[in-house]
Design a binder for these strands. Structure first.
Lengths: 205, 205
DNA sequence: AGATCCATGTAAGACGTTACATGATTTG
DNA sequence: CAAATCATGTAACGTCTTACATGGATCT
Protein backbone atom coordinates (compact mmCIF):
# COMPACT_ATOMS: atom_id res chain seq x y z
CA UNK A 1 0.00 0.00 0.00
CA UNK A 2 2.05 2.90 -1.32
CA UNK A 3 -0.88 4.97 -2.45
CA UNK A 4 -0.87 8.74 -2.64
CA UNK A 5 -1.91 9.05 0.98
CA UNK A 6 1.15 7.17 2.19
CA UNK A 7 3.36 9.14 -0.16
CA UNK A 8 2.06 12.40 1.27
CA UNK A 9 2.46 11.24 4.84
CA UNK A 10 6.00 10.10 4.06
CA UNK A 11 6.87 13.50 2.67
CA UNK A 12 5.36 15.22 5.68
CA UNK A 13 7.31 13.01 8.08
CA UNK A 14 10.31 15.20 7.34
CA UNK A 15 8.83 18.68 7.31
CA UNK A 16 5.60 20.52 6.67
CA UNK A 17 4.86 21.35 3.07
CA UNK A 18 2.25 22.43 0.56
CA UNK A 19 0.80 20.14 -2.07
CA UNK A 20 3.02 21.81 -4.60
CA UNK A 21 6.12 21.21 -2.48
CA UNK A 22 5.28 17.54 -2.13
CA UNK A 23 4.87 17.12 -5.85
CA UNK A 24 8.27 18.73 -6.44
CA UNK A 25 9.92 16.44 -3.91
CA UNK A 26 8.38 13.36 -5.44
CA UNK A 27 9.55 14.48 -8.85
CA UNK A 28 13.13 14.44 -7.66
CA UNK A 29 12.64 10.97 -6.30
CA UNK A 30 10.71 10.09 -9.41
CA UNK A 31 13.85 10.23 -11.51
CA UNK A 32 14.67 6.82 -10.10
CA UNK A 33 11.27 5.43 -11.01
CA UNK A 34 10.60 4.64 -7.38
CA UNK A 35 7.88 7.15 -6.57
CA UNK A 36 5.50 9.40 -8.46
CA UNK A 37 2.17 11.14 -8.14
CA UNK A 38 0.30 13.88 -9.98
CA UNK A 39 -1.38 17.02 -8.65
CA UNK A 40 -4.70 15.48 -9.49
CA UNK A 41 -4.15 12.84 -6.86
CA UNK A 42 -2.08 14.77 -4.33
CA UNK A 43 -4.53 17.59 -3.61
CA UNK A 44 -7.58 15.41 -2.96
CA UNK A 45 -5.42 13.09 -0.85
CA UNK A 46 -4.22 15.97 1.33
CA UNK A 47 -7.78 17.20 1.78
CA UNK A 48 -8.89 13.78 2.95
CA UNK A 49 -5.90 13.31 5.23
CA UNK A 50 -6.75 16.62 6.88
CA UNK A 51 -10.38 15.53 7.33
CA UNK A 52 -9.14 12.37 8.97
CA UNK A 53 -7.00 14.35 11.37
CA UNK A 54 -3.77 12.75 10.18
CA UNK A 55 -2.43 16.12 9.07
CA UNK A 56 -3.27 19.74 9.83
CA UNK A 57 -3.78 22.51 7.30
CA UNK A 58 -2.57 26.05 7.80
CA UNK A 59 -3.08 28.84 5.30
CA UNK A 60 -0.14 31.08 4.75
CA UNK A 61 -0.94 34.41 3.17
CA UNK A 62 2.72 35.36 3.37
CA UNK A 63 4.49 37.88 1.16
CA UNK A 64 1.29 39.05 -0.48
CA UNK A 65 0.50 35.74 -2.18
CA UNK A 66 -2.98 34.38 -2.33
CA UNK A 67 -3.22 31.71 0.30
CA UNK A 68 -0.87 28.79 0.16
CA UNK A 69 -1.95 25.84 2.23
CA UNK A 70 0.76 24.24 4.30
CA UNK A 71 0.22 20.83 5.78
CA UNK A 72 1.90 19.27 8.80
CA UNK A 73 1.63 15.73 10.09
CA UNK A 74 -0.01 15.14 13.46
CA UNK A 75 0.90 12.63 16.17
CA UNK A 76 -1.94 10.41 14.95
CA UNK A 77 -0.63 10.79 11.44
CA UNK A 78 2.80 9.57 12.46
CA UNK A 79 1.33 6.68 14.39
CA UNK A 80 -0.91 5.72 11.48
CA UNK A 81 1.94 5.96 9.00
CA UNK A 82 4.32 3.80 11.02
CA UNK A 83 1.59 1.33 11.87
CA UNK A 84 0.74 0.91 8.20
CA UNK A 85 4.40 0.45 7.33
CA UNK A 86 4.63 -2.20 10.04
CA UNK A 87 1.68 -4.07 8.53
CA UNK A 88 1.79 -6.63 5.75
CA UNK A 89 4.04 -5.66 2.85
CA UNK A 90 2.42 -6.04 -0.58
CA UNK A 91 4.39 -7.66 -3.38
CA UNK A 92 6.69 -5.40 -5.31
CA UNK A 93 6.02 -4.68 -8.93
CA UNK A 94 8.54 -4.06 -11.63
CA UNK A 95 7.06 -3.02 -14.93
CA UNK A 96 9.70 -2.68 -17.60
CA UNK A 97 8.52 -1.95 -21.13
CA UNK A 98 12.16 -2.28 -22.11
CA UNK A 99 12.53 -5.85 -20.90
CA UNK A 100 9.15 -6.68 -22.35
CA UNK A 101 10.33 -5.48 -25.74
CA UNK A 102 13.64 -7.30 -25.39
CA UNK A 103 11.74 -10.57 -24.98
CA UNK A 104 10.85 -10.16 -28.64
CA UNK A 105 14.16 -8.70 -29.75
CA UNK A 106 14.58 -11.53 -32.24
CA UNK A 107 11.58 -10.21 -34.18
CA UNK A 108 12.57 -6.56 -34.09
CA UNK A 109 14.86 -4.69 -36.47
CA UNK A 110 18.42 -4.64 -35.21
CA UNK A 111 18.70 -0.89 -35.36
CA UNK A 112 15.70 -0.39 -33.12
CA UNK A 113 17.06 -2.87 -30.60
CA UNK A 114 20.34 -0.99 -30.59
CA UNK A 115 18.62 2.31 -29.88
CA UNK A 116 16.47 0.82 -27.12
CA UNK A 117 19.51 -0.55 -25.36
CA UNK A 118 21.33 2.75 -25.74
CA UNK A 119 18.38 4.49 -24.14
CA UNK A 120 18.15 2.02 -21.30
CA UNK A 121 21.85 2.40 -20.57
CA UNK A 122 21.56 6.19 -20.55
CA UNK A 123 18.50 6.00 -18.31
CA UNK A 124 20.14 3.73 -15.80
CA UNK A 125 23.26 5.84 -15.71
CA UNK A 126 21.06 8.79 -14.85
CA UNK A 127 19.40 6.83 -12.10
CA UNK A 128 22.73 5.86 -10.62
CA UNK A 129 23.79 9.49 -10.69
CA UNK A 130 20.53 10.45 -8.93
CA UNK A 131 21.13 7.91 -6.19
CA UNK A 132 24.71 9.06 -5.78
CA UNK A 133 23.50 12.63 -5.47
CA UNK A 134 20.95 11.65 -2.82
CA UNK A 135 23.56 9.88 -0.81
CA UNK A 136 25.87 12.87 -1.02
CA UNK A 137 23.07 15.29 -0.13
CA UNK A 138 22.75 14.07 3.40
CA UNK A 139 23.86 11.08 5.43
CA UNK A 140 20.32 10.18 6.51
CA UNK A 141 19.66 7.28 8.82
CA UNK A 142 20.62 3.65 8.49
CA UNK A 143 17.39 2.95 6.62
CA UNK A 144 18.01 5.55 3.96
CA UNK A 145 21.61 4.42 3.48
CA UNK A 146 20.37 0.89 3.05
CA UNK A 147 17.88 1.88 0.38
CA UNK A 148 20.43 3.93 -1.52
CA UNK A 149 22.98 1.14 -1.30
CA UNK A 150 20.46 -1.39 -2.50
CA UNK A 151 19.47 0.77 -5.42
CA UNK A 152 23.02 1.40 -6.41
CA UNK A 153 23.98 -2.27 -6.20
CA UNK A 154 21.14 -3.47 -8.39
CA UNK A 155 21.42 -0.62 -10.87
CA UNK A 156 25.14 -1.17 -11.31
CA UNK A 157 24.69 -4.89 -11.81
CA UNK A 158 22.01 -4.30 -14.43
CA UNK A 159 24.04 -1.67 -16.19
CA UNK A 160 27.09 -3.88 -16.39
CA UNK A 161 25.01 -6.72 -17.75
CA UNK A 162 23.59 -4.47 -20.45
CA UNK A 163 27.04 -3.38 -21.56
CA UNK A 164 28.48 -6.88 -21.54
CA UNK A 165 25.70 -8.72 -23.30
CA UNK A 166 24.13 -6.21 -25.64
CA UNK A 167 26.11 -7.60 -28.53
CA UNK A 168 24.37 -10.96 -28.23
CA UNK A 169 20.81 -9.59 -28.48
CA UNK A 170 21.71 -7.24 -31.25
CA UNK A 171 23.12 -10.13 -33.25
CA UNK A 172 19.94 -12.10 -32.66
CA UNK A 173 17.73 -9.27 -33.93
CA UNK A 174 16.22 -9.00 -37.40
CA UNK A 175 18.83 -8.16 -39.94
CA UNK A 176 17.08 -5.77 -42.29
CA UNK A 177 13.72 -4.09 -42.72
CA UNK A 178 11.22 -3.13 -40.02
CA UNK A 179 8.47 -5.68 -39.26
CA UNK A 180 6.27 -6.09 -42.32
CA UNK A 181 4.82 -9.59 -42.08
CA UNK A 182 2.31 -8.96 -44.84
CA UNK A 183 5.09 -9.20 -47.37
CA UNK A 184 5.10 -12.95 -46.78
CA UNK A 185 2.36 -15.10 -48.23
CA UNK A 186 1.03 -18.02 -46.21
CA UNK A 187 3.38 -20.98 -46.32
CA UNK A 188 6.12 -18.67 -47.44
CA UNK A 189 7.04 -17.32 -44.02
CA UNK A 190 10.38 -17.94 -42.40
CA UNK A 191 10.16 -20.08 -39.29
CA UNK A 192 10.96 -17.31 -36.88
CA UNK A 193 7.82 -15.54 -38.00
CA UNK A 194 5.61 -18.54 -37.40
CA UNK A 195 6.97 -19.47 -34.00
CA UNK A 196 8.77 -16.63 -32.28
CA UNK A 197 11.29 -17.96 -29.83
CA UNK A 198 10.67 -15.29 -27.21
CA UNK A 199 6.97 -16.01 -26.82
CA UNK A 200 7.71 -19.21 -24.97
CA UNK A 201 9.44 -17.11 -22.34
CA UNK A 202 6.15 -15.58 -21.27
CA UNK A 203 5.06 -18.97 -20.08
CA UNK A 204 7.56 -19.01 -17.27
CA UNK A 205 9.68 -15.86 -16.86
CA UNK B 1 2.43 0.62 -23.08
CA UNK B 2 2.28 -2.85 -21.56
CA UNK B 3 -1.45 -2.89 -21.08
CA UNK B 4 -3.55 -6.04 -21.09
CA UNK B 5 -3.93 -5.94 -24.85
CA UNK B 6 -0.20 -6.13 -25.40
CA UNK B 7 0.11 -8.84 -22.79
CA UNK B 8 -2.50 -10.94 -24.57
CA UNK B 9 -0.90 -10.41 -27.96
CA UNK B 10 2.47 -11.35 -26.50
CA UNK B 11 1.07 -14.59 -25.14
CA UNK B 12 -0.58 -15.36 -28.46
CA UNK B 13 2.66 -14.73 -30.36
CA UNK B 14 3.76 -18.15 -29.20
CA UNK B 15 0.63 -20.23 -29.59
CA UNK B 16 -3.13 -19.98 -29.63
CA UNK B 17 -4.82 -20.03 -26.24
CA UNK B 18 -7.98 -19.35 -24.29
CA UNK B 19 -8.38 -16.48 -21.86
CA UNK B 20 -7.90 -18.92 -19.06
CA UNK B 21 -4.69 -20.26 -20.56
CA UNK B 22 -3.28 -16.76 -20.89
CA UNK B 23 -4.04 -15.97 -17.28
CA UNK B 24 -2.25 -19.14 -16.15
CA UNK B 25 0.79 -18.31 -18.24
CA UNK B 26 0.96 -14.82 -16.88
CA UNK B 27 0.71 -16.17 -13.37
CA UNK B 28 3.85 -18.18 -13.89
CA UNK B 29 5.60 -15.13 -15.17
CA UNK B 30 3.96 -13.12 -12.42
CA UNK B 31 6.05 -14.86 -9.79
CA UNK B 32 8.86 -12.56 -10.87
CA UNK B 33 6.71 -9.46 -10.49
CA UNK B 34 7.25 -8.68 -14.16
CA UNK B 35 3.78 -9.27 -15.55
CA UNK B 36 0.27 -9.72 -14.24
CA UNK B 37 -3.35 -9.34 -15.23
CA UNK B 38 -6.71 -10.48 -13.89
CA UNK B 39 -9.56 -12.26 -15.65
CA UNK B 40 -11.58 -9.11 -15.34
CA UNK B 41 -9.21 -7.37 -17.72
CA UNK B 42 -8.16 -10.28 -19.93
CA UNK B 43 -11.58 -11.33 -21.20
CA UNK B 44 -12.74 -7.87 -22.28
CA UNK B 45 -9.34 -7.26 -23.86
CA UNK B 46 -9.57 -10.45 -25.91
CA UNK B 47 -13.06 -9.56 -27.06
CA UNK B 48 -11.90 -6.17 -28.26
CA UNK B 49 -8.79 -7.56 -29.94
CA UNK B 50 -11.02 -9.94 -31.88
CA UNK B 51 -13.31 -7.07 -32.91
CA UNK B 52 -10.26 -5.21 -34.15
CA UNK B 53 -9.19 -8.20 -36.21
CA UNK B 54 -5.88 -8.56 -34.40
CA UNK B 55 -6.84 -12.03 -33.21
CA UNK B 56 -9.37 -14.63 -34.27
CA UNK B 57 -11.78 -16.50 -32.01
CA UNK B 58 -12.66 -20.15 -32.44
CA UNK B 59 -15.02 -22.06 -30.19
CA UNK B 60 -13.93 -25.50 -29.22
CA UNK B 61 -16.66 -27.78 -27.90
CA UNK B 62 -14.12 -30.54 -27.42
CA UNK B 63 -14.41 -33.46 -25.02
CA UNK B 64 -17.99 -32.61 -24.06
CA UNK B 65 -17.19 -29.31 -22.39
CA UNK B 66 -19.32 -26.28 -22.88
CA UNK B 67 -17.59 -24.07 -25.41
CA UNK B 68 -14.10 -22.91 -24.75
CA UNK B 69 -12.98 -19.96 -26.83
CA UNK B 70 -9.54 -20.24 -28.31
CA UNK B 71 -7.83 -17.21 -29.73
CA UNK B 72 -5.08 -17.01 -32.31
CA UNK B 73 -3.12 -13.99 -33.46
CA UNK B 74 -3.53 -12.80 -37.04
CA UNK B 75 -0.94 -11.38 -39.41
CA UNK B 76 -2.25 -7.90 -38.64
CA UNK B 77 -2.02 -8.72 -34.96
CA UNK B 78 1.64 -9.66 -35.30
CA UNK B 79 2.36 -6.54 -37.31
CA UNK B 80 0.56 -4.34 -34.81
CA UNK B 81 2.31 -5.96 -31.87
CA UNK B 82 5.80 -5.58 -33.33
CA UNK B 83 5.08 -2.07 -34.52
CA UNK B 84 3.98 -1.05 -31.05
CA UNK B 85 7.08 -2.61 -29.51
CA UNK B 86 9.20 -0.69 -31.99
CA UNK B 87 7.57 2.56 -30.94
CA UNK B 88 8.59 4.79 -28.05
CA UNK B 89 9.36 2.91 -24.86
CA UNK B 90 7.64 4.32 -21.75
CA UNK B 91 9.63 4.74 -18.56
CA UNK B 92 9.92 1.70 -16.38
CA UNK B 93 8.34 1.68 -12.96
CA UNK B 94 9.58 -0.07 -9.90
CA UNK B 95 7.22 0.04 -6.97
CA UNK B 96 8.69 -1.57 -3.89
CA UNK B 97 6.71 -1.35 -0.67
CA UNK B 98 9.68 -3.04 0.96
CA UNK B 99 12.16 -0.32 0.02
CA UNK B 100 9.61 2.32 0.90
CA UNK B 101 9.29 0.85 4.38
CA UNK B 102 13.06 0.51 4.72
CA UNK B 103 13.39 4.25 4.17
CA UNK B 104 11.79 4.59 7.58
CA UNK B 105 13.48 1.61 9.17
CA UNK B 106 14.95 3.85 11.85
CA UNK B 107 11.44 4.52 13.17
CA UNK B 108 10.22 0.93 13.04
CA UNK B 109 10.64 -1.77 15.67
CA UNK B 110 13.74 -3.85 15.06
CA UNK B 111 11.88 -7.11 15.06
CA UNK B 112 9.56 -5.98 12.29
CA UNK B 113 12.48 -4.81 10.20
CA UNK B 114 14.12 -8.17 10.65
CA UNK B 115 11.01 -10.01 9.47
CA UNK B 116 10.58 -7.73 6.48
CA UNK B 117 14.14 -8.35 5.35
CA UNK B 118 13.71 -12.09 5.86
CA UNK B 119 10.63 -12.00 3.67
CA UNK B 120 12.33 -9.96 0.98
CA UNK B 121 15.26 -12.37 0.91
CA UNK B 122 12.93 -15.36 0.63
CA UNK B 123 10.96 -13.63 -2.11
CA UNK B 124 13.99 -12.78 -4.16
CA UNK B 125 15.39 -16.25 -3.81
CA UNK B 126 12.12 -17.56 -5.21
CA UNK B 127 12.34 -15.16 -8.10
CA UNK B 128 15.86 -16.27 -8.90
CA UNK B 129 14.69 -19.87 -8.84
CA UNK B 130 11.83 -18.98 -11.19
CA UNK B 131 14.21 -17.34 -13.65
CA UNK B 132 16.57 -20.30 -13.47
CA UNK B 133 13.68 -22.63 -14.18
CA UNK B 134 12.60 -20.56 -17.17
CA UNK B 135 16.07 -20.63 -18.60
CA UNK B 136 16.27 -24.37 -18.14
CA UNK B 137 12.79 -24.89 -19.63
CA UNK B 138 13.85 -23.89 -23.10
CA UNK B 139 16.76 -22.10 -24.72
CA UNK B 140 14.53 -19.49 -26.38
CA UNK B 141 16.01 -16.83 -28.61
CA UNK B 142 18.73 -14.31 -27.90
CA UNK B 143 16.14 -11.84 -26.61
CA UNK B 144 14.74 -14.20 -24.02
CA UNK B 145 18.22 -15.20 -22.84
CA UNK B 146 19.08 -11.57 -22.47
CA UNK B 147 16.04 -10.86 -20.34
CA UNK B 148 16.65 -13.89 -18.13
CA UNK B 149 20.29 -12.97 -17.74
CA UNK B 150 19.42 -9.42 -16.88
CA UNK B 151 16.90 -10.50 -14.29
CA UNK B 152 19.28 -12.93 -12.74
CA UNK B 153 22.13 -10.43 -12.57
CA UNK B 154 20.09 -7.74 -10.86
CA UNK B 155 18.30 -10.14 -8.52
CA UNK B 156 21.57 -11.71 -7.41
CA UNK B 157 23.16 -8.32 -6.80
CA UNK B 158 20.19 -7.20 -4.73
CA UNK B 159 20.09 -10.42 -2.76
CA UNK B 160 23.74 -10.24 -1.93
CA UNK B 161 23.37 -6.67 -0.81
CA UNK B 162 20.50 -7.61 1.47
CA UNK B 163 22.52 -10.34 3.12
CA UNK B 164 25.61 -8.24 3.53
CA UNK B 165 24.05 -5.09 4.87
CA UNK B 166 20.97 -6.17 6.76
CA UNK B 167 22.84 -5.98 10.03
CA UNK B 168 23.32 -2.23 9.63
CA UNK B 169 19.63 -1.39 9.15
CA UNK B 170 18.56 -3.69 11.91
CA UNK B 171 20.94 -1.96 14.29
CA UNK B 172 19.54 1.40 13.25
CA UNK B 173 15.95 0.32 13.94
CA UNK B 174 13.94 1.13 17.07
CA UNK B 175 15.16 -0.88 19.98
CA UNK B 176 11.99 -1.77 21.86
CA UNK B 177 8.24 -1.24 21.60
CA UNK B 178 6.15 -0.76 18.44
CA UNK B 179 5.44 2.83 17.39
CA UNK B 180 3.33 4.55 20.03
CA UNK B 181 4.10 8.25 19.74
CA UNK B 182 1.16 9.27 21.91
CA UNK B 183 3.07 8.16 24.95
CA UNK B 184 5.24 11.25 24.58
CA UNK B 185 3.91 14.64 25.55
CA UNK B 186 4.81 17.67 23.48
CA UNK B 187 8.34 18.86 24.21
CA UNK B 188 9.09 15.51 25.71
CA UNK B 189 9.76 13.67 22.47
CA UNK B 190 13.12 12.24 21.54
CA UNK B 191 14.68 13.92 18.52
CA UNK B 192 14.26 10.98 16.21
CA UNK B 193 10.52 11.31 16.60
CA UNK B 194 10.51 14.97 15.72
CA UNK B 195 12.79 14.78 12.69
CA UNK B 196 12.98 11.32 11.16
CA UNK B 197 16.22 10.89 9.27
CA UNK B 198 14.71 8.90 6.44
CA UNK B 199 12.15 11.49 5.46
CA UNK B 200 14.84 13.67 3.96
CA UNK B 201 15.57 10.86 1.56
CA UNK B 202 12.22 11.33 -0.18
CA UNK B 203 13.42 14.71 -1.33
CA UNK B 204 15.99 13.23 -3.65
CA UNK B 205 16.05 9.42 -3.91
C1' DA C 1 -20.71 -36.49 -2.70
C1' DG C 2 -17.82 -32.66 -2.03
C1' DA C 3 -13.93 -30.11 -3.27
C1' DT C 4 -11.26 -28.33 -6.68
C1' DC C 5 -10.18 -27.00 -11.12
C1' DC C 6 -11.62 -25.35 -15.77
C1' DA C 7 -13.93 -21.61 -18.03
C1' DT C 8 -16.27 -17.22 -19.01
C1' DG C 9 -18.14 -13.13 -18.18
C1' DT C 10 -20.24 -8.74 -15.78
C1' DA C 11 -20.72 -4.99 -12.52
C1' DA C 12 -19.00 -1.97 -9.08
C1' DG C 13 -15.63 0.50 -7.41
C1' DA C 14 -10.73 2.03 -6.44
C1' DC C 15 -7.17 4.65 -8.01
C1' DG C 16 -4.82 7.49 -10.80
C1' DT C 17 -3.68 10.49 -14.97
C1' DT C 18 -4.65 14.15 -18.31
C1' DA C 19 -6.57 18.13 -19.34
C1' DC C 20 -8.81 22.12 -18.08
C1' DA C 21 -9.68 26.43 -15.44
C1' DT C 22 -7.73 30.18 -12.82
C1' DG C 23 -4.84 33.53 -11.07
C1' DA C 24 -0.76 35.57 -8.63
C1' DT C 25 4.27 36.26 -8.74
C1' DT C 26 8.76 36.22 -10.33
C1' DT C 27 12.20 36.45 -13.91
C1' DG C 28 14.24 37.61 -18.44
C1' DC D 1 5.75 42.84 -21.11
C1' DA D 2 6.02 38.01 -21.99
C1' DA D 3 7.20 33.74 -20.24
C1' DA D 4 7.95 30.73 -16.70
C1' DT D 5 7.02 29.26 -12.12
C1' DC D 6 4.14 29.04 -8.04
C1' DA D 7 -0.23 27.34 -6.48
C1' DT D 8 -4.75 24.97 -6.18
C1' DG D 9 -8.34 22.61 -7.59
C1' DT D 10 -12.07 19.98 -10.58
C1' DA D 11 -13.96 16.97 -14.17
C1' DA D 12 -13.53 13.51 -17.47
C1' DC D 13 -11.62 9.57 -18.64
C1' DG D 14 -9.03 5.16 -18.62
C1' DT D 15 -7.50 1.16 -16.64
C1' DC D 16 -7.37 -2.34 -13.70
C1' DT D 17 -8.96 -5.15 -9.49
C1' DT D 18 -12.46 -7.33 -6.63
C1' DA D 19 -16.36 -9.59 -6.14
C1' DC D 20 -20.10 -11.85 -7.92
C1' DA D 21 -22.69 -15.15 -10.89
C1' DT D 22 -22.69 -19.47 -13.31
C1' DG D 23 -21.95 -24.11 -14.68
C1' DG D 24 -19.43 -28.33 -16.41
C1' DA D 25 -15.54 -31.54 -15.44
C1' DT D 26 -12.29 -33.97 -12.68
C1' DC D 27 -10.42 -35.78 -8.71
C1' DT D 28 -10.64 -37.91 -3.94
Amino acid sequence: MIDVRMLCLAALMGHEASGYDIKKELEKGGSTGLVDASFGSIYPALARLAEDGLITARTEGGRGRTGKTIYAITAEGRAHFLKTLSGPIPEEKYRSPFLFAMLFADELPRERVRVMIDQQIAQWEEKIAAVEASRAAGPGGAGASFVFGFGEATLRAGLEFLKRHRRAVEMGARDAAPPAPTQYRAGDRPDAMTEPAAAAALRTP
